[in-house]
Simulated scan of single mutants.
Amino acid sequence: MLDTAVEVFWRDGFHGASVPDISKATGLSTSSLYNAYDSKLGLFEAALDRYLDVVVGNFMYRPLLEGGAGLQDIEAYLDRLESTVTTAPPRGCLAINTIAEFRDPSPAVAKRTERYREELRAGLRAALNRAVERGEIAAGSVETRLDSLVPIIIAFNLFLTARVPDGETRGLMRAARAVLRG
């Protein structure tokens, strides 16, 4: 049920997803949803947690954190990210979409989007530190690379959601690779 709610929010956003739409997609009554999550926002927070744990954590960050290579692990991450350009319809990243959608998020939503950014930095930092150990990059360049890569990755996901032409969107991945290789 929560995975279905993730899909609805990812597709429609928080404001675009109505409780009746979520009820229909999950097969649960509106009262069951409210009994379980107290509110639409409570369900959204649970769905965002699920997305961060499963989609982002397992598919995107875990290989960065636990990889055995340095730059190659980040290249593989960027490849996974770039492969989402062909997703139809393109939907970017639920966490980034949430950052864009909420101009003044509740503390609970802000905490989750902060978690996304912190975990992105931690995964990239781990792989960059392995790159330093392997002699692929200079030791003093890790933070500078992070400060460039994180906003590029966020912009990439925003471009996907906004359906910016593929060439421009892929251009961000070229920029990320240029920063990576320094």
Results as ranks from 00 to 15, higher is better:
residue 66 E to T: 11
residue 5 A to H: 00
residue 95 A to D: 13
residue 140 G to Q: 08
residue 76 A to I: 02
residue 35 N to R: 12
residue 46 A to K: 05
residue 98 T to L: 07
residue 92 G to L: 05
residue 156 F to Q: 02
residue 131 A to T: 04
residue 34 Y to C: 00
residue 15 H to C: 01
residue 10 W to G: 07
residue 110 A to P: 00
residue 131 A to R: 04
residue 178 A to C: 02
residue 63 P to N: 05
residue 73 D to R: 04
residue 100 A to N: 11
residue 152 I to N: 00
residue 146 L to E: 11
residue 112 R to C: 08
residue 90 P to N: 08
residue 110 A to W: 00
residue 168 E to P: 00
residue 171 G to Q: 02
residue 135 G to L: 00
residue 77 Y to V: 01
residue 150 V to E: 15
residue 84 T to D: 01
residue 61 Y to H: 14
residue 60 M to P: 00
residue 4 T to C: 05
residue 166 D to T: 11
residue 98 T to H: 11
residue 118 E to G: 01
residue 115 R to D: 08
residue 132 V to T: 06
residue 136 E to V: 00
residue 136 E to Y: 00
residue 180 L to M: 03
residue 65 L to C: 05
residue 64 L to T: 09
residue 25 A to H: 09
residue 62 R to W: 06
residue 132 V to K: 04
residue 146 L to C: 11
residue 181 R to E: 09
residue 59 F to A: 12
residue 18 S to C: 06
residue 179 V to E: 07
residue 31 S to A: 14
residue 45 E to F: 04
residue 40 K to V: 00
residue 171 G to D: 07
residue 155 A to Q: 12
residue 144 T to K: 15
residue 43 L to E: 08
residue 23 S to K: 05
residue 168 E to T: 06
residue 33 L to N: 04
residue 90 P to W: 08
residue 170 R to G: 04
residue 139 A to H: 12
residue 19 V to F: 09
residue 142 V to T: 10
residue 132 V to H: 10
residue 133 E to V: 03
residue 158 L to G: 13
residue 20 P to V: 03
residue 102 F to R: 06
residue 68 G to E: 15
residue 151 P to S: 09
residue 117 R to D: 07
residue 163 R to P: 01
residue 166 D to E: 14
residue 1 M to H: 14
residue 178 A to H: 10
residue 139 A to G: 10
residue 108 A to W: 03
residue 19 V to C: 03
residue 141 S to R: 12
residue 1 M to A: 13
residue 134 R to P: 01
residue 56 V to R: 07
residue 72 Q to N: 09
residue 89 P to L: 12
residue 56 V to F: 15
residue 42 G to Q: 03
residue 153 I to Q: 15
residue 103 R to N: 10
residue 102 F to I: 01
residue 179 V to Q: 05
residue 56 V to I: 07
residue 42 G to P: 07
